[in-house]
Design a protein around this nucleic acid. Structure first.
Lengths: 230, 230
DNA sequence: GACTAAATTTCGGTA
DNA sequence: TACCGAAGTTTAGTC
């Protein structure tokens, strides 16, 4: 990892063309040849970058460039596409390299998977008398998050999302269309369950006869803790 | 902007829980209080981070922490949510601060917007005798990229994507359903135009009677250059 | 490897 | 300001 703080300008040509006017920035050069150009604001997304696999090579300066005050220039080219990033350095303020080694990586406790697990355990939240058939019920076009039966024994397909948007309703609709063609399952009702359901998604879902269910993650987790106490 | 290279471990609790075991990493502390934790690989996404608005504060070390070899610890808390990131530093290898000033920002020449513009100008690419009605034709559920008429005067709704996937076909399908209920427009045919159309998206589109059109961006841009020459 | 769906998405535009 | 869709999305999982 090499870190350079420099007064620079950057040009990118690839899937689009972009230019960064001259300013002081932080350049992070990773070992795989990739580069990130960061400013002092924004979120984690760099102003510009080149993703691996790519290679960085110094550019021989033309007279015009030298006269313009450029002291060094790099060309970072992608190895598979024609993407190219050119960094022109006017002044190098800081330059250091560090051997970081291989990172052990992030360990995360997911949320959507956990939500599905919790709802499978607390399936009665969908409605009284409901029973779980199985999680990740496979269909030809992908797995339905939860397949259950209601008190009368009818099939219920449940799609779970952290944030419920229109795409989730579309996804569930596709599953329902398919499942309702299966005489062993039909009729299948749909339930769209999410921690938060956007108004347009709710409208679309209800228009299609899909019930919406807002999940309280903390309450469900609390229930789980209670259950595991005994 | 402060840059710290350190042997550290990181814990995040917020929308999910995550942990980074002890290793050497680069910590980028931006002026707005935000922090990025980068390793020497991956793409531009940090291993962990805290987005602004947030604040960084040193943590007083407990005896256990000191005995474990922690020399310093930071707590970065989000100002609006309850998100929290804790960085435990075992050894600081590098630490420097730099005043970058405000960045002038990225200037980019878009692609999808440009594609839409080009196709509106070269609407005959959709088919001989086609005429443009308007770009960004508003419907109750959002704007259709292009509304046109074919040689016979029938409406044609065009959805433009850079990469055509299933979601784009779904989007267009929603528009078509709605527009076909409008007697002033119906019948409306659909055209799914993209630089690249995925096979599954093509199948779904054609199954629904939507025509697929692969766009050659460079050729279209070339046409535009020709047109502007005269 | 191709494709799909999720993301602690972030970012920009519009109502 | 909230909502929605795009992103040079990236990333993870499945087929």
């Amino acid at each position: 990892m090499r870190i350079v703080v420099a007064d620079c300008s950057v040009d990118y040509a690839g899937r689009l063309s972009a230019h960064l006017p001259r300013a002081k920035r932080v350049l992070m050069l990773k070992n795989d040849g990739s580069i990130l150009v960061h400013s002092d604001g924004g979120s984690y997304k760099p102003l510009n970058w080149m993703s691996p696999p790519c290679a960085l090579a110094p550019v021989e300066l033309s007279e015009e460039q030298a006269e313009a005050g450029i002291v060094e220039a790099w060309e970072v080219t992608h190895k598979k596409t024609a993407d190219k990033l050119v960094v022109s350095l006017f002044e190098i303020i800081h330059d250091s390299s560090h051997d970081l080694g291989v990172d052990p990586g992030l360990i995360k406790d997911g949320v959507e998977a956990h939500l599905q697990e919790l709802l499978a355990e607390q399936i009665e939240l969908v409605g009284e008398g409901h029973t779980l058939v199985r999680r990740e019920y496979m269909t030809a076009i992908g797995p339905v998050d939860i397949l259950a039966r209601d008190a009368s024994g009818a099939s219920v397909a449940i799609e779970i999302k952290r944030r419920g948007g229109i795409d989730g309703v579309e996804q569930l609709t596709r599953y329902l269309e398919l499942m309702n063609r299966d005489p062993k399952l039909a009729p299948v009702r749909g339930v769209f369950a999410a921690q938060e359901i956007k108004p347009q998604a709710r409208t679309l879902a209800e228009d299609r006869g899909i019930r919406c269910l807002v999940l309280d993650y903390d309450a469900m987790r609390g229930m789980e803790d209670q259950n595991t106490l005994f």
